[in-house]
Write a protein that binds this DNA or RNA. Structure first.
Length: 431
RNA sequence: CGGGAAGUAGCGCAGCUUGGCUAGCGCGCAACGUUCGGGACGUUGAGGUCGUGGGUUCAAAUCCCACCUUCCCGACCA
């Protein structure tokens, strides 16, 4: 194809998509295998992964869903440092609590530092310096950041890693009533995020663990790669997890029926922290009544990189990934089957241009590979739609739109292809 | 951190029990030719500190010791 004309179109031959034909050794989880086979991530060492171009695209799309929902819930994005002084952690006592997972070192100036495993201390320290009055509350701040945890045992690729990406939000309210409202908004935003990413979650009142606080909810997605377990009651719909599992020993607390257990992965956790951090770090504000009070805090986390794995666990078949539309790295893949056929090239090129002009992200597999290999790779990387252009179809002036998930094929005239495809996007494959 | 398994070419593996010619196979990679609608074929070729260090031996991928790394189960996990 012509270099200049295709400069804006992603061409597979120029793009870094190192797909693997065989399942990599030492991988158990389907998502881990597909992440590697589809060329989305690469392991540097145990628990430390690189995101390759295709994987980064998925990551960015998930991040943008999260940003939209966080912004809509009234949160504001900022960016905190992951390089942190350990003194700050000593003030809350959490340098001891998180002792085993904190990556710590002394820098060349002799300062005791750590790589942040989470950011309550940093954000509270920040906010206490700026917020003095109830008039400045409430405020909710969030970031999408790399976290570092020295996990003794990493698991399932990016599911439990030593370096991973988290969205963490922190809310600051003047009273508990305000916190509860903020908490509800975040709760709803979380449901939107997971729904848009194509994963189902159970929401469960949970233990707060080392985060502290009273009320917390976990967002758990059923998946074999999970490290948690939920108990489901099929007769009354009760869902539980955590300590409740050992306490009940199999009988539903509300209707006494037998419970079904399901392994699940924790994707999100939200907490009503209260004053745990504002007290110890003296994040105080002057209230309307003239009293100096600790800010009422909440915190809200989503394991972003882990969410990618969960999306795959929920959306794959024996041939590869089935990306939900909102998180797919591209909207559509165009497959010109015979690169030596100028007409096939021209049609592919024109169609790619038109679809890009309509705002779609298009990947063209312009490699001089056999059709079989192109089909297999297309299935593997799992873009929602594929448009196949071949010599055979073009003789009749036709090409094919195929939906990856259903396998349904729609044959369309080549001059109608762009508009038909836009129809498919809006109305589905049905006639 | 306890228990188990595994490290040989970019990927997947054989060879090790019973030490012995120049360490092999498949995929992938490079070149040429024939192919081209579901992982095509032929010919030629490149690519290796056999995880690392020590030991035994005339001789070590192979036997012995130590260590490193990775994966799985468990403990742990905001």
């Amino acid at each position: 194809m012509n270099e200049t004309e295709l400069r804006n179109i992603m061409r597979w031959s120029q793009y870094f998509i190192p797909t693997l034909k065989e399942t990599p050794v030492g991988t158990e989880a389907v998502s881990h295998q597909l992440l590697l086979r589809a060329g989305l991530v690469n392991m540097l060492t145990s628990g430390v992964y690189s995101y390759l171009p295709l994987g980064l695209r998925v990551l960015r799309r998930i991040e943008s869903i999260i940003r939209e929902e966080m912004d809509a819930a009234g949160a504001q994005e900022l960016f905190l440092p992951c390089l942190q002084p350990r003194d700050l952690w000593k003030k809350t006592g959490r340098d001891q609590v998180l002792n085993e997972i904190m990556i710590r070192f002394t820098d060349n100036r002799g300062r005791e530092m750590c790589l942040g495993p989470t950011h309550e201390e940093v954000i509270t320290e920040l906010v206490r310096n700026y917020v003095q009055s109830y008039r400045q509350l409430p405020v909710t701040l969030y970031q999408i950041q790399t976290k570092f945890r020295d996990e003794l045992r990493t698991r399932f690729g990016i599911v439990r890693a030593c370096e991973f990406i988290m969205k963490d939000a922190y809310s600051f309210d003047r009273d508990w009533e305000g916190l509860k409202q903020t908490y509800q908004r975040m709760h709803a935003a979380y449901q939107n995020v997971f729904r848009r990413c194509g994963v189902d979650v159970y929401i469960i009142a949970a233990d707060s663990g080392a985060m502290g606080g009273d009320v917390s909810h976990e967002f758990l997605a059923p998946a074999p790669i999970g490290e948690d377990e939920v108990a489901l009651c099929e007769s009354c719909g009760f869902v539980g997890a955590g300590a409740m599992l050992t306490e009940t020993k199999g009988a539903c607390p509300s209707c006494q029926q037998a419970l079904t257990r399901q392994v699940a992965i924790e994707l999100g956790h939200i907490f009503q922290l209260g004053t745990k951090y504002s007290q110890s770090l003296e994040a105080l504000f002057l209230d309307e009544d003239g009293q100096l009070k600790p800010i009422i805090m909440g915190c809200y986390g989503i394991g972003v990189s882990r969410l990618i794995a969960a999306v795959i666990e929920r959306n794959y078949d024996d041939k590869g990934i089935l990306w939900p539309r909102e998180v797919a790295p591209f909207d559509v893949e165009i497959l010109p089957l015979q690169m030596e056929d100028p007409q096939v090239q021209t049609v592919a090129q024109d169609l790619a241009q038109v679809l890009e002009a309509r705002g779609l992200k298009v990947l063209v597999d312009d490699r001089s590979e056999s059709p079989g290999r192109k089909f297999h790779d297309a299935d593997l990387i799992g873009l929602p739609y594929r448009i196949v252009i071949g010599t055979r179809g073009l003789k009749e002036g036709m090409l094919e739109i195929k939906e990856r998930r259903s396998g349904e094929v729609l044959k369309v005239r080549k001059e109608d292809a762009a508009s038909k495809f836009m129809d498919v996007l809006h109305k589905g494959m049905g006639r």
